[in-house]
Structures are given as C-alpha cells and as structure tokens.
Design a protein around this nucleic acid. Structure first.
Lengths: 122, 122
DNA sequence: GTTGAGAGTTTCTAAATGTATACTATGGAT
DNA sequence: ATCCATAGTATACATTTAGAAACTCTCAAC
C-alpha cells in the first residue's frame, strides 16, 4: 500500500524535473557541450521565459545538483555562467528514453521530430 | 531558439506522466504482472487518493494509451478492470531509469529504496 | 550625474491542479 | 422497502505554479 508521502525517489525526481521550462534549460545547457552559458544567453534562446521563472528554475537545478553556477566578477558587468554537472549530463539519456518512447507509441501525433526540435540533440 | 509551444514530444509526455498519482497508478498496475486490477482495488492500495483524482488519472492514462479499461457487467456489482497496455509496460523502464539516476546521484537523501518502496518493483 | 548592460528581484494576478465531502446509479441480498 | 458494494460524479474550496510588468543593484564609461 503506498501513500504519496513524498518518500518516493522517482516522484521527487519527477517533481522538479517536470516543471515548466526545466527540461528546456537542461537541453540548452546540453547543447554546446561543456561550454558554459550565461544567464542572458539562456534567456535569449528561450524567447518566452520570464526572468523570474528562469532564475527560479536555475536555482532549483543548482540545488538539485544538475547544474553549477559560477560568477565571474573579474570584468564588468559581472557574468554568471551555468553549466551541466556530471549528474545533469547523466540525466539526458532519460530524456532521450522518453523521446524514444513517444516516437514509438505516439507516431500519429505531431512530434517535435517533425516540427522544430531537430536542434534538441536527443 | 526554442519556444515552449507544446510541440515538444518530451514535454507532452512529461506533462501527463508527471501529474500527481499517475506514476503510482502505473506502478500499481505493473505490480501483479498482467493481472487486471479493479478500481476499488487500486483505490484501496493508494490510501490517500480521492475518487475524483483516481478516475481522472485513469481516464488520462487510458486516453494516452498506457492503460485499458474493461467493464465486466456479467456479474453484479459491475466490475471495472484496468491493466497496462504494451505501451504502458514499455514506460516502466523509463521510471526505472529515473530511480537508478536518483540512487546514483542523490544517495545522501532518504530514498524510497530504504524507506517503504521495496514493493515498487523497479 | 546620467546612461547602460548583466543578472536578477518584487508584487500582483491568473490559471491549473488537487482536496474534501457529499452525492448518484445499479441491482442483488435481507 | 432498505441496505450494501462498486464505480464513479459534482460542487466548493485551497494550493501550487506560472506570467506580466516594473523595479533593483553594481560599477564602468561618457
């Protein structure tokens, strides 16, 4: 008998990963390999995200250990750079798995494969 | 440049799968192999779920093709039986992957493995 | 001393989601 | 006639989440 009392590992994972924009941020950081990306760079790539949500998501991801934040205060304006940690990179295959699952079982629907997601690298 | 315009396959998958209780329902159906489970049986296993949410989730999962619903009206009271489809069963490894990921990267936290999730079969 | 870029924060509002509690329909058993 | 189990619905309420728009802070350059 289970109770949804937040002890479930998978649920906890789902919980932060399934928030809006989180995946897209992870993918954006994944594109470009190990290169660090700046706050404004991420923001520019994700047209419609608001600064509030972006900074919230980045904090969550950092707290969960999937990304790192590093402030470069040597120049001005200060740059903040984000990149995937090993754990973050290790999460990417799970996203791939989901895409593979969807392509296998939902081929009748519009899938990003055929729309505009060729740059998502999965 | 991406826009979160719901064309993303992975996002659409996440979207229904990450709703509260959905995973647990899937796991409950997965336990016990191919045996069908009844509405009340599922409900009893998941102590705190309300009937509204359970029936909502079951409908979503059916619509998404991960489970099937079959009404057995031959006896009384009528039985409704749910079971995983092939696509539903095929989703289980993704959940496993998440658990493996979490066990690898978050061993410092309480994980269901060590708490009460031994019956989750992942 | 005003402008400007980068990296956010704040406040307020709206929409989506979930919870609690009570109610319905069916038909057999008592 | 009434009670009971199964399989849900319905209504009202609470919480969570996201979005819009404006504001802040730092320091360097003009």
């Amino acid at each position: 008998m289970y109770t949804m009392d937040d002890n479930c590992t998978v649920y906890k994972t789902m919980d932060f990963i399934s928030k809006k924009w989180t995946l897209l941020i992870l993918l954006e950081l994944f594109k470009g390999g190990k290169r660090k990306k700046r706050y404004s760079e991420i923001k520019d790539k994700m047209e419609d995200i608001t600064p509030k949500i972006l900074s919230q998501r980045l904090k969550e991801l950092e707290k969960e250990g999937l990304i790192t934040r590093r402030v470069d205060a040597s120049q001005f304006p200060v740059k903040t750079e984000y990149s995937l940690t090993e754990s973050g990179r290790d999460f990417i295959p799970i996203i791939s798995q989901m895409k593979i699952w969807a392509l296998k079982w939902k081929p009748h629907k519009d899938l990003c494969e055929s729309v505009d997601c060729k740059n998502c690298d999965l």
